[in-house]
Design a protein around this nucleic acid. Structure first.
Lengths: 342, 342
DNA sequence: CTGAAAGCGCTTACAG
DNA sequence: CTGAAAGCGCTTACAG
């Protein structure tokens, strides 16, 4: 097979003995153009498989219909559900999506924000890198094109932010454990509290306070990277202490699964001896034995709302930058790891 | 905070009392321009936070440095590892990536191929939708811009294709089971054999033949959607038969995990009574109890090689379209679900 | 060393 | 109903 060359308006015009202007108008169904001409033009366009160059189009109209998306790490299941929501919503509104990773590095994030602008993205969806110390470039970007934060957000940025009810969700999870009679509830969280970790920790503390349970720092275990393996490790630390916890609230499913693995290894009964609750409702939470109680974090929904909000802002630009937080409610899903139905 | 307006070459030129040409050259370090001028231009550009409009640039040079990626479904963990590889490799070569989903629908895929071209993507990475009956649009696209197939491929398309050694990997997995003394090895596969399912089934059959085990169609279980739940369901079917299998080879980890769940429920001993092997080495495979033996499918590596191949073709375009398959070797990872070390 | 001009593919206000 | 011309932001061959 041979390669083909690109068909342009000029090509069509030449072949049809028309001007480029007329061809352009015909393809766009301009009312001025005669039905006959429109038909001739469209037939040839079809025949030659003409595809308009959206680059030229967007370049002229200052609208590219591209949304830029920056996430810390694409290869997390939760991230991919966020992305799915973004793709679906973008698609429905005629937008394409450029995706890139910051790898949780601030430099990378800054660089990506710049390239997104260079590519003429109409707007940007950003989930902040964990190590974002300075939000300078974020503000710089925000002053030029619409930008919406989602999932990993920061109150310092005056823009629309899409989050779940982190604090309340954590409160509910811990309250659930307290309701089951648990009194020594440990938490597995991040060392450098990210927005999410911080909020969930606050919810944990408020629940304890509400039910008059003193905060015991021995039960507060932190780690740099809240992964499955670190969940295991921190649980081993908890088990080695003189007084063991009777419940573990992990701020991610992965850490919770690590906890269950550690408990299973030492034949600790779940939930009778130690109950476990996670956060995310990832697919993994139903694979582990016993199945994990967890907060359902509706990734696709968050992605859709984030994309929708951004597209709204693109269509109705604000003169001033304003903060606005959209909080999405979550539900606690109770499974065998915290409450075993008989 | 106030919004800012876009800074262009013209802006800079006006302020500096220079021509647009000179400013352009200065920013690109053209040897003709004096060091002094270069400095002046760059300082102002820095100060005003000038970002070149890559759209205008690409529009002129016919190179957008955008790669289009189409996958059936973004919210699968394996897909996201493929995407990670693509992003990393693209990034290293100065390319941005537009990602979209075909949702396993041929219409959607066709539409996406067109938009990718309209956006002036320099090349396309495509993982075929399951229900791709006609490859007409794929061929049409291929005749215009470089296109590389990965993961879900088709021998009908004359282009570079990146796959794993599907057939051999399946052969090895089944051979492993045979080596453990298993004789009644069931397979869980797809009804309408996709490229992957077909190859894996072939490997299964070749292994049986090699070791003189007759193919028993009762042990060949197929399903439309090779998911966890269908893995469970098909395993229940197998268990209900007069003569049970002594091993199950599932062509996906999810189906294998479903199988394990079903076996656990009926207290079938794994691997003594029935051994299980999956395919993918997804994170789930180490969460299930017992941990799953599986074929390690190096997603990130496949993604990287696919992106690399595409970028190579963009840089060295071929006149003729040629088929070329790059096969990536895989390893079988043996865990407790097939062989329990004592 | 610097500038004026053409052109990438398209749209649209202005003329006729 | 149709066309010639300008312009989106940039680069580059051509002049000087």
């Amino acid at each position: 097979m041979e390669k083909k060359t690109t068909v342009t308006l000029k090509n069509l015009a030449l072949r049809l003995n028309l001007s480029v202007s007329t061809v352009s108008r015909a393809l766009n169904n301009h009312p001025d153009i005669s039905a006959h001409t429109i038909q001739r033009v469209k037939e040839l366009a079809e025949k030659l498989n003409y595809v308009p160059n959206l680059f030229a189009k967007g370049f002229r109209s200052h609208r590219t219909h591209i949304l830029g998306v920056i996430v810390p790490n694409i290869s997390h299941l939760f991230t991919s559900t966020l992305l799915k929501g973004i793709l679906v919503e973008a698609e429905q509104n005629g937008y394409r999506v450029i995706i890139s990773e910051s790898n949780n590095e601030e430099n990378k994030q800054t660089e990506m924000l710049q390239t997104m602008m260079q590519f003429g993205a109409d707007g940007i969806l950003l989930s902040l890198a964990k190590k974002t110390k300075s939000i300078h470039q974020v503000l710089e970007t925000l002053q030029r094109i619409p930008l919406v934060l989602f999932d990993k957000v920061s109150e310092k940025v005056p823009c629309t932010q899409i989050v779940i009810n982190e604090e309340e969700a954590a409160f509910n999870a811990v309250e659930h454990l307290i309701g089951l009679g648990k009194k020594r509830i440990a938490i597995l969280k991040e060392t450098e509290n990210s927005f999410n970790s911080e909020k969930r920790f606050q919810g944990y503390k408020r629940a304890l306070k509400t039910y008059n349970i003193p905060l015991d720092l021995k039960l507060v275990q932190s780690t740099e990277d809240i992964s499955l393996n670190n969940g295991k490790r921190l649980t081993n630390v908890l088990l080695s202490q003189k007084v063991r916890p009777d419940a573990i609230f992990a701020i991610t499913d992965n850490a919770a699964i690590g906890a269950i693995k550690a408990l299973n290894k030492f034949n600790v009964r779940i939930p009778e001896d130690i109950a476990v609750v996670g956060f995310s409702n990832s697919i993994n939470s139903t694979i582990i034995q016993p199945e994990l109680s967890t907060v359902d974090q509706p990734g696709e929904r968050i992605g859709r709302i984030a994309a929708k909000s951004l597209i709204d802002e693109i269509n109705h630009p604000n003169k001033e930058l304003i903060s606005k937080t959209i909080e999405i409610k979550t539900n606690l899903i109770v499974r065998d790891s915290s409450f075993k139905a008989i």
